[in-house]
Design a protein around this nucleic acid. Structure first.
Lengths: 69, 69
DNA sequence: GATGAATGTCAAGCTCACTTTACAAACTAT
DNA sequence: ATAGTTTGTAAAGTGAGCTTGACATTCATC
């Protein structure tokens, strides 16, 4: 799943550490998210959308049938 | 997290078994979701939103700070 | 060039979303 | 009554999202 976490974070002038604290997750989680190493939980996706004042769909792009086969 | 999976499913006249097949998850997953036993993965939330032709936010209601303390 | 801030890797561990199987309860219908 | 469909519970297992900690790299800036 593609995401715009890094872009949104930079729009808000936040470091990875800043963001991790605001979201109450570890810095590793932010790094791995931005690198696309795994998908966020829906809770984390909601937290991001509220912080960035947008929708989940604005941050995460899901392409139909991308997850497995 | 509150959700409207059961309501949406009934709008579309689907059984839990129908829905589980369309989403490619187990029937248990649908039951537990509707009963609010756990939160969906973001992948499952996206699948539901595409199937029901709406946004994730239309189906799942996240209240700020509900997850822990 | 040393110091500090920001980003990154690696690895081990925990929790929970989801699976599978088996069985029970409720509600049709014949 | 009994057979089929739908919804439910219980329990054990797997995998991924996330954590912690330690250490490496890059880039300012002094």
């Amino acid at each position: 799943m593609k995401n715009f976490v890094k872009e949104k974070r930079m729009e808000f002038n936040l470091t990875q550490d800043d963001l991790s604290e605001k979201l109450d997750v570890s810095r590793q989680t932010i790094i791995s998210l931005e690198k696309g190493r795994y998908n966020p939980s829906i809770i984390l996706a909601f937290k991001l959308s509220k912080l960035f004042n947008c929708t989940i769909e604005d941050i995460f792009i899901y392409e139909e049938g991308e997850e497995n086969e």
